[in-house]
Design a protein around this nucleic acid. Structure first.
Lengths: 236, 236
DNA sequence: TTTTTACGGATTGTGTACAAGTTTTTTGAG
DNA sequence: CTCAAAAAACTTGTACACAATCCGTAAAAA
């Protein structure tokens, strides 16, 4: 019943992802393979894989023979990310409104009731997990397999940046209320309503993140633009 | 003036990507690291990096300690991919209609005239390159940096599957005409028109691909679904 | 003084060997 | 003959060593 042992590379990827999301690195900071390998107690091989994965997801930038550098998202970028996420999910939801099968609606209701139960018990972790299922079911109900995969991948990429909003007061209760409305609109096959509801439901996450981290990032935002400008000049 | 030598891993990635797009592998076929390393004349280290990159882009699937398996897209998936691409580009374009700066419009006109020149000389390669610039400029004009990057990345991922449509007769001339209309609508800041024009402009690429490869893929499509079903059963 | 070039140190890219895990074959009992 | 368990063969995951490349510094030339 225990999980099959995960490769070290994946674990390291997740740790680095969290560290970047939580701001443990400065923007533009170089991630030294040798040093990090020592810190994590592994060789450079799995660590390099993790770095490449980070770059694939846009969290770092890699220059051949020069190394990989963190791209710490400022608050503008965070908003942009959730904006894109909201649009993708809204598109999924609009398609799902007319394409979802009875079985898929059943699964959605089930996931929603699981969220409800978690809310009753005030179990943030459980709510978070079932919330993820609820959203993923909508992606799949869109009927476009590729879109569903891409949206799911995007959700995974933003997960690290969404952790903070768990602790925003009353967010869970409000989220649940939004889920109820989304489900209702889906059952009514009201595509425009579903699209709007889901877009707002996802978008709000960026505003909570902003509230949570803005003071920090506003200060660092200016430095970021300077660095980005000089970096651009040196690489072009 | 010569290009800085590319790492072997990147070159191998591109070759494998093309091979998958061109159908050199069966769907579900395992990509043997040792064997491929021998064929490409490199060690397993850079080859593994290429495989991981393929998986990150959804062209293959990797199971820990079991290997990576190709996910050859059937024609349904191809259509889905261009559908998503069309929607992303359309969104960029709609935003660009109201947000593009004068400088960005100038660059767009420049890229369009480059396309025009390439068309006059019947230089498909050049047209293809300037076409890419034209589209990328629209992404950037959206004003959402993250969206621009993601759309650009998606374009890169679909590039391998778009090669075929270069050879569809009159496609270049029609594409150019579409560019002209898009540019005109952008200058007029007519967001709804731009959105619609770009969506159709991108969408049509999937239909040409479909015409080009459908006979093949229709036959293999059935086998694909069978395999996918059995694979699902074995991994769950 | 300013620019160019050569060198030294450090870091990434790749090859190879071994460890860990998976699949297939073999072997034995029922 | 069938099925289960064990072992052999094979494949991926990781460690480590060396090669290729880049960066900074300092010396030399303009």
């Amino acid at each position: 019943m225990s999980e099959p042992r995960q490769p070290a590379a994946k674990l390291i990827y997740e740790r680095l992802e969290t560290m970047i999301a939580e701001g443990h690195f400065k923007d533009g900071e170089r991630l030294d393979e040798t040093m990090l390998a020592q810190e994590f107690g592994v060789s450079r091989t799995p660590l390099r894989e993790a770095l490449r994965q980070l770059t694939a997801n846009g969290l770092t930038e890699t220059f051949p023979n020069r190394g990989t550098f963190v791209r710490r998202p400022d608050f503008v970028r965070i908003v942009e990310m959730f904006e894109v996420m909201a649009e993708m999910e809204a598109w999924c939801a609009r398609l799902a409104a007319t394409r979802a099968t009875a079985a898929q609606l059943l699964l959605l209701r089930h996931a929603a009731s699981r969220c409800e139960a978690a809310l009753q018990e005030n179990d943030s972790r459980a709510y978070y997990a079932h919330n993820e299922t609820f959203h993923r079911l909508i992606y799949e109900a869109s009927g476009n397999g590729f879109l569903a995969e891409e949206t799911s991948a995007m959700q995974g990429r933003l997960k690290a940046f969404r952790q903070a909003q768990l602790f925003v007061p009353d967010r869970l209760a409000r989220s649940m209320q939004e889920h109820r409305m989304i489900l209702k609109a889906l059952e009514a096959q009201d595509a425009p309503a579903v699209e709007r509801l889901v877009r707002d439901h996802v978008r709000i996450q960026s505003t909570t993140y902003q509230e949570f981290r803005a003071p920090d990032d506003l200060a660092e935002g200016a430095a970021w633009f300077d660095k980005a400008a000089s970096r651009k000049a040196s690489t072009v």
